[in-house]
């Protein structure tokens, strides 16, 4: 219990720090600020996917789809509500829209999670990928949210403070979930499904929970993204986006939250740092991914610790 309160203290500290930084954020260069927000959003995405792919050992390739659902739901909510609300209450609208986006994504997660239970490994990967693509295709044909040309005019509510506060909450919530007595079941399902069910753990329930919770936070990240970029288009949520997030999780070391966070930071900053190399930038990026995987196949940032059964 002591450790738990210790962790809470860190959480409060992180949120206060984000809030503090946020008040001074106007003095930073807008480009760096934007990239820092990208980092925060990617942390939320990677940590939430880590619950599904890392802790629970499923292989989802549809995270961009959940992000899209959350992003569009949040954007539509705040576009509709903002004109009616006094400016003082706008942060509430923002929070509400993020929550709604998260819930919409969670509902989608449920819809994907439940039918996919019979599937494993690559089959689950293909089904989640398929769902992600279907979401994209549906959005592309929904003229009410802009269709192929995208949804514009989303208010700019996302700030550095909001992003990192939410990132801290995501990390905290998922870590608490996994480390709780209940949550040990995720790791049991990951390690050995048959043994887990023999011990009275219901793998189905854990898998669905992982999908729903993971999707919820992906939806929140989508909402942050929407209010950061102020524009959404369906092509931004294709399967390459899901792959980007999967790479963060695997490079960070599946199931190792600290490593996944570090990988999310690294993989967001790396392409920006490489911009100076102009047209060979993405070639270098690809080479670095291969090199990193060769050098640290267990994941980059395992901090010298190993947990049995997480290979």
């Amino acid at each position: 219990m002591n450790h738990q309160t210790g962790a809470k203290r860190y959480l409060v500290l992180a949120i206060l720090l984000s809030a503090g930084v946020s008040t001074f954020s106007h003095i930073f260069n807008r480009y760096y600020l934007g990239v820092a927000i990208d980092v925060g959003i990617n942390i939320v995405l990677a940590v939430s996917l880590n619950l599904i792919n890392g802790h629970t050992g499923q292989f989802s390739l549809g995270h961009a789809g959940f992000m899209a659902v959350g992003g569009y739901a949040a954007a539509v909510t705040s576009i509709q509500l903002s004109p009616w609300v006094p400016p003082a209450l706008l942060p509430l609208v923002f929070l509400g829209s993020l929550l709604l986006g998260g819930l919409a994504a969670a509902a989608t997660g449920l819809a994907v999670g439940v039918p996919s239970l019979r599937l494993r490994g690559d089959y689950l990967a293909i089904v989640s990928l398929g769902f992600g693509e279907i979401i994209r295709v549906v959005l592309q044909n929904m003229e009410s949210v802009g269709g192929a040309s995208g949804l514009k005019g989303i208010p700019k509510y996302t700030t550095l403070g909001w992003t990192f506060a939410l990132a801290a909450i995501t990390v905290y919530a998922i870590a608490c979930l996994v480390n709780s007595t209940y949550g040990r079941g995720f790791i049991a399902v990951h390690d050995d499904e048959v043994a887990a069910s023999a011990m009275g753990i219901n793998p189905t329930r854990y898998k669905v929970t992982a999908f729903v919770v993971g999707a919820f936070f992906a939806g929140v990240a989508g909402g942050l993204y929407a209010h950061h970029k102020q524009f959404l288009s369906p092509t931004g949520f294709d399967f390459m986006k899901s792959i980007d997030i999967v790479v963060m999780v695997i490079l960070g070391g599946m199931g190792r939250t600290a490593g996944v966070i570090a990988a999310a930071i690294l993989l967001t900053l790396l392409p920006e740092v490489l911009r100076g190399f102009a047209d060979i930038r993405m070639i270098l990026y690809a080479l670095l991914i291969i090199g990193l995987m060769m050098a640290r196949p267990q994941g980059l940032f395992t901090l010298g610790r190993s947990r049995p059964g997480t290979t």
Binding site: H3, Q4, G6, A7, Y10, L11, L13, A14, I43, F164, A167, A168, V171, Y172, A175, C176, N179, T257, A258, I261, A262, L303
Partner: peptide
């Protein structure tokens, strides 16, 4: 719960 502390520190 050491993980959490580490995470926060990393962040």
């Amino acid at each position: 719960m050491k993980t959490l502390a580490t995470i926060q520190r990393v962040m």
